[in-house]
Structures are given as structure tokens and as C-alpha cells.
Simulated assay, not measured.
Amino acid sequence: MKKIINDPAAVVAEALRGMAAAHQDLLTVRTDPALVTRADAPVAGRVALVSGGGSGHEPLHGGFVGPGMLHAACPGPVFTSPTPDQVQAAIEAVHGGAGVLLVVKNYTGDVLNFETAAELAAAEGIEVRTVLVDDDVAVKDSLYTAGRRGVGGTLLVEKIAGAAAERGADLDTCEELARRVVANTRSLGMALTACTVPHVGEPSFTLAEDEMEIGIGIHGEPGRQRLPLEPADGIVRRLVDAVTEDLPFAEGDRVLLLTNSMGGTPLLELYLAHGVAEGLLAERGVTVERRLVGPYVTSLEMQGMSLTLLRLDDELIDLWDAPVRTAALRWGC
């Protein structure tokens, strides 16, 4: 295992210290319990958005904390859910009097721990709502979930609901928008190689040099099928076919296309894949009106990619375009 680390057990804490140093004007980072908040939190009179999950998926979630997106993120150990006390501390730190919306990826540990924290916060008089993200079309259930996994669509929920909160939308509106994004988002990923969790010290699974896995999870969970490696055209077509057939997306739909690196895929390959995907969608009469390309929801150093499609309407486009200022996503500021 070759990684730029010191003690594997201290990776998250040391990374958080580095994040705090790099973004002093934007973020406040706490280590006991670990959480990342907006520097100006709490924002009085505004709905607060809180998310989180295991580390190793950066920039998700801490990289999306800031004006126009999340108010707080709870980083657990690598690929391990944050604890209820972390989530409760985050809720209390950013609650501005208008309620808190929790954006939770559909993994069993995340769901249980965020649910416990929500109950604790409610006992203190804080109104909390929860939206589960389950956009992965690869499998119905896995070792980590009951139902579909939450993957790339999480970013889209956080951006759009966060923009609404920034504008002063109430908790009901922010929740409805988040649920609308979830209902209209589908994702699928693939892997060329495994990743190595620092405290484990060896790859989480094995793929031969001439193999790929379609539908891999962001923690290395098994996917739909293991196949002989194909050129980019074939890989992207498999992803586009599966994603568009699931909702389904239809001729005349307007979409946002997120072409996401799993962490180890260079932009040269990612842009190539994105171009193929746009061409395939055009053949189906689906119009890509917004797009995002890069490493946004990763799996450490895994080589691979995922495609996420969100069916858009005018309101969702307006909220996507709204100003955002975070460590990993910013425009219009």
C-alpha cells in the first residue's frame, strides 16, 4: 500500500486539520466530535442542511459545505458512518431557528445514526426532516443497504435544496425539492480497479487486468456484473442504457449530466467518456442542459466512473444555477 499518510488510524483527523487550514475563510472544523460547518453558522432564519457519511468519498460531503449548499457535514471514519452524537452536534451547531433538513445516503449505518440524531434533536425542540438519497440503479439491496444505494445524486440534492435554503425557502419547500430531485435522479458506476482502505492495507476486491465491474458501489460493494474490459464507447453505452431505462428518461427530457470520477480516473479519460455520453443521449432525444465533470463522489483511489442523470424543470435549473461557494463547488459568487 502506497499512500501519503502517517498513521492509518489518524487519516481523517489529520485531513480535517488540513482542510481547516486550507479554507479558514469558509469553514469551521471541529474534531471532537468531528464535523465541518459553515464559518457563518448558524444562519438565523434559514433552514439548515446537514449531511455526512464515511470519509473516503471526498469532496463529498465536507467539500460541499458553504453558502448555497450544506451548512454542516459529519465525516465518519473511512467508509464508516458518522455517529449519532456527531450528527446531533452538527444539527445543534447550525440550527438557525427555521428547522434542519438531513440529506442521508441510503446505507444502513447512515440511516440508523441520522435517525437517532434526529430524534435527539427533536426532543430538544428542533424540527428535523430527513430525505434519503437512493439513486443507484445497480442493485436493489446490498450488504450495506435495504433498497438502492445513495451515490452521485447526493451532490445534486445538496446543491438544489441548499440553494433554496439560501434564498429563504421554508422547511416544507426544501424537503419537497430534495425529494423531487431524488425521484428524478438515477446513477450507475463502474470500476477498473479496487481501492485500498488505509487501515485495511490491501485492495477491497480483485479485478483482473482484462476485467471491469459494472454497478460497483462507492465502498467497493459488488455490482451488476463483471465483464471483459471494453473500449470507452462500450462502457459508457452500458451506463447510459441502464440509467435511461430505469426512470425512464424519454425523448424531449431535459437533464443534468454528472460524469463523475471514482477518484483514480484522470480528466483526460473522464472528458472522453462525457463526450460519448452526451452523444448517446442526443441520439435518444434527451437534451443535456447542465453538466458537471470531475471527481465529486469518489471511492478513495478507485479507477472508474459513474454517470448521474437528473430530469430537469425550470425551477430545478434555476436552483442549480444559483450562486454557490464551497471548497469543491463554486460559481456565481
Rank of each mutant, 00 (worst) to 15 (best):
N6L: 12
A9F: 08
V12N: 02
E14G: 00
A15Q: 10
M19A: 09
A22R: 14
A22I: 06
L27H: 07
R30W: 09
D32G: 12
P42D: 07
V47Y: 13
A48G: 10
L49N: 07
P67E: 09
M69S: 11
A73F: 13
P82M: 09
V87N: 11
A89F: 12
A90C: 14
V94W: 15
V94L: 14
G96N: 06
V100Y: 15
V103K: 11
Y107I: 01
Y107P: 00
L112C: 07
A117N: 10
A118W: 09
V133A: 08
V133E: 00
D136F: 08
A138N: 01
A138V: 00
V139C: 03
S142H: 07
S142K: 04
L143E: 10
G152E: 05
E158V: 10
A163D: 03
A163I: 13
A163N: 07
A165P: 09
E166V: 04
G168E: 12
G168Q: 10
G168F: 13
A169K: 09
A169M: 15
T173Q: 13
E175F: 15
G189A: 02
M190D: 03
L192F: 15
V197S: 07
H199T: 09
T206A: 14
T206D: 13
A208R: 14
E211Y: 03
E213T: 01
E213D: 07
I218W: 05
P222E: 03
R224H: 02
Q225R: 03
R226D: 00
P228C: 07
P228E: 00
G234V: 05
R238C: 00
R238W: 08
L239F: 13
D241C: 06
A242K: 05
V243A: 03
D246L: 03
P248F: 12
P248S: 04
R254W: 06
T259M: 14
S261Q: 02
G264H: 04
L267H: 01
L268C: 01
L270H: 03
L272K: 09
A273I: 00
H274S: 13
A277T: 02
G279T: 04
L280P: 00
A282V: 03
R290S: 02
V293I: 14
G294Q: 07
Y296Q: 05
L300R: 04
M302W: 02
M302L: 05
Q303C: 13
G304P: 04
L309E: 00
L310P: 00
L312P: 11
D313E: 04
L316I: 01
W320Q: 00
V324A: 14
R325F: 10
T326Q: 06
A328V: 02
R330W: 15
